[in-house]
């Protein structure tokens, strides 16, 4: 299972002739750290890295905010057409993303947001999955807690922020984990929205690098190592939370 990761690292520290040698070179001998430096000459890696980070952070923050509000509203509040709106949101869960994509592209184009981080992020912060996911968590909280807070004189905002949000923390952290992974790794939508090499995230950047520098494999491997590393490091630091987050997508589904 880990072999591809090991092999990736080995190839990114090898020379090009070692990468293409027969039989394969399993240990490069002298480690070619310079491959990593050459990545920055081959593509605007820092720009793309920054775009990837912004997309991930903005989309995750936006989703957590909107989905916790929507989840609370669906689970607890009475408002007109609540059932209809919830039903429509649920039905979106079953629609494959390709069905939204052409009109979403046109909207982003008409707003003049092609080749911008906002354009990549905007549709993704509204998440039917996230709203549904958070609704399930809010529904699991006893109504009595809210009533007690109300009797103690809390207004709805205070109830939401001081009582409810701390109680759905496991849900928020699971949603955050899933959204971070999906945003960092997403290819199709950013590929459609960004064409400028300094405005695209790493996924699209790597995809285009592959087309241009098909012979410089060592640099390609070094770039891919640097693209995978941040998420894997984050994962290893917060492994318990990530594993629980991904496992909970199964328990709630």
């Amino acid at each position: 299972m880990v072999f591809p990761f090991v092999w990736q690292l080995v190839m990114s520290l090898s020379t090009n002739s070692q990468v293409t040698s027969i039989p394969p070179t399993f240990w490069p001998g002298e480690l070619q750290w310079a491959n990593f430096g050459r990545v920055f000459e081959s593509i605007p890696f820092l720009d793309q890295f920054w775009v990837s980070v912004s997309i991930t952070v903005l989309r995750t923050a936006g989703q957590l905010l909107l989905c916790s509000l929507a989840g609370y509203a669906f689970a607890r509040m009475r408002f007109p057409f609540r059932r209809v709106i919830f039903g429509l949101t649920l039905s979106i869960l079953m629609v494959p993303p390709e069905v939204f994509m052409i009109p979403q592209y046109q909207i982003i184009q008409n707003l003049g947001l092609l080749n911008t981080t906002t354009g990549v992020v905007l549709p993704g912060i509204f998440s039917a999955f996230g709203a549904f996911f958070m609704t399930q968590f809010f529904r699991g909280i006893p109504v009595e807690l809210e009533e007690a807070a109300r009797l103690d004189g809390c207004n709805p905002w205070q109830i939401f922020i001081k009582v409810m949000l701390p109680l759905v923390k496991p849900g928020l952290s699971a949603l955050a984990v899933l959204t971070v992974v999906w945003s960092w790794n997403d290819l199709l939508w950013p590929l459609v929205v960004t064409t400028d090499t300094t405005k695209m995230p790493l996924t699209v950047g790597l995809a285009s690098l592959q087309g241009q520098y098909t012979t410089d494999y060592a640099v390609l491997m070094a770039a891919s190592t640097m693209a995978v590393a941040p998420i894997l490091i984050l994962f290893i630091i917060m492994q318990r939370r990530v594993i629980d987050g991904i496992a909970s997508s199964g328990l709630k589904g």
Binding site: S224, V228, I231, L232, I246
Partner: peptide, 11 residues
């Protein structure tokens, strides 16, 4: 889980 978390493009 590494295989599921890592960026599919890079992998």
């Amino acid at each position: 889980l590494m295989s599921y978390i890592a960026m599919p493009v890079a992998i």
